[in-house]
Design a protein around this nucleic acid. Structure first.
Length: 313
RNA sequence: GGUAGCCUGUUCC
């Protein structure tokens, strides 16, 4: 019945949760119990759709009749409550894990850390982190993702000093910092309007053999668009392309919208075609920005032409 | 003994 389980999984991924649940119930009625991973897909589907009552029902059934939930089940379920902003419930689930003899893993901690930063405060997250570290043996190195989460939210709250402490701890531990950690650091410097530092971090990143990605590019581009330096933003995009970084639709979106607002529709149009050549099709609002941009300076023909282009893309 | 699918961090809005 591997095929039925694959079907349930695909239904979940496509958001067809009713069908997925129906098939699961059907199989059980016929005496076959879908395996744990399949159940986890169902829980995940319900959580992502915000139907936590259904996820809750499913997890209860799993506890009572199997397949017995594992750490992934709880991670998924906890994240569901985090997305709803219900940290009380998320934390109580976390603390209930030992009752079921399920051990939380790094991912569990990171889900909660992230949500505590987002829905609560960095303070709450810091306390939680300390609690976790105290719990086990000493000198446990902090997970790189956990450090990145903390660093990110410290920057976002304007606490640069603490953010950098997380960064230094990370690099001191000799753990391999990755592209996301660098992106967060660069973004942090851009937030405090210190692009120069951002660039020097970027250089450091290249030196340690870590390749930039679309986020790295977008972080710089976003910064330059915000201060109205579209020439610089454009240069970033071009040099990233030459480094082999594949831009996503966010990159052109920022520059095109910015250029249109500032009245340089011609340049925006040029960029649009560049992206279309790389078969990157922008969002509707990017097209709107261009159409509106041409309309604003009275070039109705050009506006209509863009509209045709949009329909054909 | 080998093998598969599920859960965590960064950029625009």
């Amino acid at each position: 019945c591997r095929e039925c389980e694959t079907m349930i999984r695909d239904f979940c991924l496509e958001g067809k949760l009713d069908a997925a649940l129906w098939l699961r119930n059907k199989l059980i009625a016929n005496g076959y119990i879908p395996d744990l991973v399949t159940h986890n897909h169902l829980v995940n589907g319900f959580c992502k759709a915000g139907h936590l009552e259904k996820a809750d029902f499913l997890v209860r059934e799993m506890l009572d009749h199997g397949p017995f939930p594992n750490c992934v089940t709880f991670n998924t379920f906890i994240k569901g409550y985090c997305l709803k902003g219900d940290m009380k419930k998320a934390l109580s689930l976390f603390w209930s894990m030992p009752e079921h003899s399920i051990r939380p893993n790094k991912i569990t901690y990171n889900i909660l850390l992230h949500a505590l930063c987002k829905n609560g405060s960095v303070e709450d997250a810091r306390n939680f982190l300390e609690e976790i570290l105290d719990d086990g043996c000493e000198k446990k190195p902090v997970d790189i993702i956990a450090s990145t989460i903390m660093m990110d939210y410290c920057f976002k709250n304007g606490d640069t000093v603490e953010a950098l402490q997380y960064w230094m701890k990370m690099s001191r531990q000799g753990r391999r910092t990755d592209v996301v950690a660098y992106n967060v650091l660069i973004h942090g410097f851009c937030l405090s309007h210190d692009v120069k530092l951002g660039f020097s971090v970027f250089g450091q990143m290249l030196k340690s053999g870590i390749l930039p990605d679309a986020c790295t590019c977008n972080t710089f581009v976003s910064h330059f668009c915000k201060i109205g330096r579209f020439d610089e933003a454009w240069n970033i995009l071009v040099s990233m392309l030459s480094m082999g970084v594949a831009p996503d639709w966010i990159t052109p979106k920022m520059i095109i919208e910015g250029l249109c607002v500032h009245g340089d529709v011609v340049k925006a149009n040029e960029l649009l075609h560049l992206m279309l050549e790389s078969s990157i099709v922008p969002e509707p609002r990017v097209w709107n920005a261009l159409i509106h941009g041409y309309g604003k300076c009275g070039e109705v023909d050009a506006a209509l032409w863009i509209k045709d282009l949009m329909v054909n893309s």
